[in-house]
Simulated assay, not measured.
Amino acid sequence: MTDKPDREALPYRDCVGVALFNADGKVFMGRRKAEGDPDQSARFDAPWQMPQGGIDKGEDPLRAAMRELQEETNVTSVSLLAEAPEWVYYDLPEEALGVAWSGKYRGQRQRWFAFAFTGSETEIDVQSPGQGKFPAEFDGWRWESLTRTPGLVVPFKRDAYRKVVEAFADIPQRFTHG
């Protein structure tokens, strides 16, 4: 007998995701820290992801995206490029259901935003974002091709990342130099 919750009875957690593009049209990818990882992404062989996080009650999704970006990367020098046309969903795997996020959610419903990074790379600080004001969620980072991101994330987020790639497919070309 299992005391796993009924997946269908659980809601999705409202969240945002950020595709942060550099001047070469590559996106920021952070490597999840293993400790304090609510959805257990870091224990998989593919612990990479773009910045993402929950939308606070009454918070505007765009404001939440900018807040999460700062909390996870220290980055504030951005300009909005696009918003994905629809919510992107993913479900937690069976082993995380009833465990992640205190067992309250079946997965996430994410609103994705694409930003151009307009600052210097010295602004990026995943070890001590906000001069230590925010807990570090990543222990490393890199710039990556948008089309490669689905293969770098945990299996249960891959379909969601494919939708993000589709939504922002035209953006990397905006940065290519003749």
Rank of each mutant, 00 (worst) to 15 (best):
F156C: 10
V88Q: 01
H177M: 15
A160F: 07
F117H: 09
R63C: 06
G58C: 00
E121F: 02
L20G: 00
D6E: 09
Q52T: 12
A46Q: 06
A100P: 15
S145W: 09
E121M: 10
T2Y: 09
S77N: 15
Y12M: 03
W101T: 07
A167P: 12
D125C: 15
I124W: 13
R158F: 07
L97I: 14
Q40R: 14
D170L: 14
Q131N: 12
I124N: 11
N22S: 08
F117L: 14
V27Q: 10
L80I: 15
E95A: 00
W141V: 11
V165G: 03
F175A: 02
F44G: 09
C15M: 11
R158V: 10
F134C: 03
E95K: 04
T149M: 08
G53S: 01
R32Q: 04
I55A: 05
W101R: 09
E71F: 11
R31K: 13
I171D: 11
P155M: 00
T76C: 08
E83P: 01
P150S: 02
P47Q: 04
E123H: 12
L146Y: 06
D91Y: 10
Q127K: 10
D60V: 07
H177S: 12
R162E: 04
L10M: 03
K163T: 08
D170M: 11
I124R: 08
D14W: 04
E59L: 07
G30Y: 05
P85C: 01
A34Q: 12
V16S: 02
A136P: 06
P135M: 02
A84K: 00
L20T: 10
F28V: 06
T122H: 12
V78C: 03
E72K: 03
F156W: 14
T73N: 05
D125V: 13
P38C: 01
I55V: 15
G98R: 01
D37K: 02
E35I: 13
T73G: 02
P129Y: 02
Q110A: 12
K4N: 02
A46N: 09
G151I: 09
G107A: 05
R158P: 07
W112R: 05
R158K: 13
E59M: 12
H177R: 14
K104E: 11
W101S: 05
E8G: 03
Y161H: 05
G30W: 10
L62P: 03
A82F: 08
D91K: 08
F21Y: 11
A136H: 04
F28H: 10
Q49P: 01
R43M: 11
G25V: 15
D170P: 00
A42V: 09
Y161I: 06
T76A: 06
P5H: 01
P61F: 08
E59Q: 15
P38R: 02
G178A: 04
R148C: 06
K4V: 11
V154W: 00
F138D: 10
G30M: 03
P11Q: 07
A46C: 01
C15N: 08
D3I: 10
V165D: 00
V16W: 01
E8A: 07
F113Q: 13
K26T: 08
Q52H: 14
Q110M: 14
N22M: 11
E137L: 14
F168M: 04
E86K: 12
A82R: 09
Q40E: 14
W101H: 11
A82Y: 02
T76R: 15
V154Q: 07
E83I: 04
M29I: 13
R63P: 02
Q127I: 06
Q108V: 07
K104M: 02
W143K: 03
T76Y: 08
